[in-house]
Design a protein around this nucleic acid. Sequence first.
DNA 1: CTGAAAGCGCTTACAG
DNA 2: CTGAAAGCGCTTACAG
Lengths: 347, 347
Amino acid sequence: MSGPADFKLPAKPASIKDIARLAKVSHSTVSRALHNHPLVNAETAERIRQLARKHGYRPSAAARSLVTQRSFTIGVVVTTISDPFVAGVVGGIEEIAAAHGFSVFLANSNADPEQEVRVVQSFDERRVDGIVVTSSRVGALYVPVLSRRQVPIVLLNNQHPSEFAYSVVIDSTQGAYDVTAHLIELGHRRIAFLGDEFGRQSDTERLSGYREALAQAEIPYNRHYIVHGDGKAEGAITAMSKLLTMPLRPTAVVCYNDMSALGAMHRIHGAGFSIPGDISIVGFDDLHISQYLNPPLTTIRQPMHEMGRMAMQTLIAILSGVISQQNIIVPGQLVVRASTAPPREQP
Amino acid sequence: MSGPADFKLPAKPASIKDIARLAKVSHSTVSRALHNHPLVNAETAERIRQLARKHGYRPSAAARSLVTQRSFTIGVVVTTISDPFVAGVVGGIEEIAAAHGFSVFLANSNADPEQEVRVVQSFDERRVDGIVVTSSRVGALYVPVLSRRQVPIVLLNNQHPSEFAYSVVIDSTQGAYDVTAHLIELGHRRIAFLGDEFGRQSDTERLSGYREALAQAEIPYNRHYIVHGDGKAEGAITAMSKLLTMPLRPTAVVCYNDMSALGAMHRIHGAGFSIPGDISIVGFDDLHISQYLNPPLTTIRQPMHEMGRMAMQTLIAILSGVISQQNIIVPGQLVVRASTAPPREQP
DNA sequence: CTGAAAGCGCTTACAG
DNA sequence: CTGAAAGCGCTTACAG
């Protein structure tokens, strides 16, 4: 990293002292006038505000936060902003943050724990007032790192939300149950599960929702119908290939999320099968694009924008000293579209 | 907005003075030790660093930037982070920023000029070292606002890049020309253009690339084949409906971008037509999902991640006092997939 | 109503 | 090699 010497300084902005000099008052009075403090002569205050406006004066957030010990910033750690689910969440966070005068630091971790730790350290130096961690596998690790400063952390769809942290999570089990039950109702019995990477918590939960629905309908569980992708289209393509080569092909596939469903659909079409004619497909998330796919995707709607809002509102509640709900579990909602239909052949 | 009084303060973090007291040296020496300044006894320096680590000391970025007049932060203004193109760009910006020790403020403007001005003012108070504005219609307006402080601004795919600002833009005209020429080569002559909102600069440029290709092939320009969407799937659906009701339907449609193409494809399939059998479709962007659509989309690849990187690199070059190229025009690249084929019926 | 003073947590010439 | 001092741009008791 380059040192300050390598950089040219921007023009120095007007300071409170400059305005004070122009208004022929002390800088204390300028500070008060700008804060609409009652104990300052109305005319003087107005004159100061005019001058400040005229000279494009902007108070230095750094100087202010140095004395107030509040930065009015929050940090958001994401695995990758290119994931449409993550982007939706960040949009919701930013919306509420802006409405409350908070600025948002955004940092990618690329799902690399070391990078995540570095990010949180930089947030610590920036003295953020709070942190939101999205879809991390190790988010809970930050809690001890930041416990010294007691920076509130909200984990959003993280693995292992710690008992010391706040969290907002989708009800994965229920969602997977609902979408599997939908397939069973349509008459499917050979239903596969195309998961995320093996062992991830949300994968385990969705798998268990799937199994619950099967058990409920007294459909025997077939472990050969369980394959694992990576939560992205790429991994789903490989995983779907395995399912397609099985002697007794499944008639429906429960995908971990919509991006996985997109990959699975691509593979199925590439193999010359039709959806839902030959195979029904369901996803999880209800990304914006999912309604426009060919065919439009049946899925579980996860209110990502709203979940981002909730995370930021939780942070604000904590900072305001209001007791806030520690763990918010958000229900998903089944959205039935054209990627599901009764199976053609009866088993 | 709530005042500071409404909030509880986080625990105060260790300061340079605390470490100085523990190490029984002056805080000047601590500062030097932490910066690996040569003029400090090696053993003392090591002892100080150990203590700092042990007590989880993190220097206050605010205090430092107050004296150095550099914040090592940049501000990124986006219309909406939920647009996958924008998300890709932000990913590229963040990557380069992080590699150079810069933190990134992210703010949504919702394409509302007033909101954009508010965002830039907040960036001004934060004393960001630079700003990137993405896909804005009014980005150039910031230049005068910030000229006082001479904060460098890089406009990315903005309308009207000012001669006072730096810019990174895709070569819209060339891209639209290439993709239209591809359709002509396949034998199409009734080619429609489904644009962005009427009057936007990138729309105008892509339309002119389309017209150039037609002129080159001596295909008469038919203004009835020009419709306007909104750069999103929604607007494209309405616009596509108009094209479908025409007595002499186009055999191919050049869409403003991939999201528009997604909407157009959805509408075409909904009407019972096939792609590319009845109608060929092309987009612009090459979003990550485009390769997985049914059929996979022929489009112009816009290297969004790389463009974000370029924007941040430009900022760093300016801050380093290196003369940087003022306007970078990035070529797009034709990617042929299965959404285009020769027209079935000869005109 | 107003100003002088102290202090937030740093960096960095200036003396020693 | 080390420390005392000044100063970055603010806020806010404390006196008047």
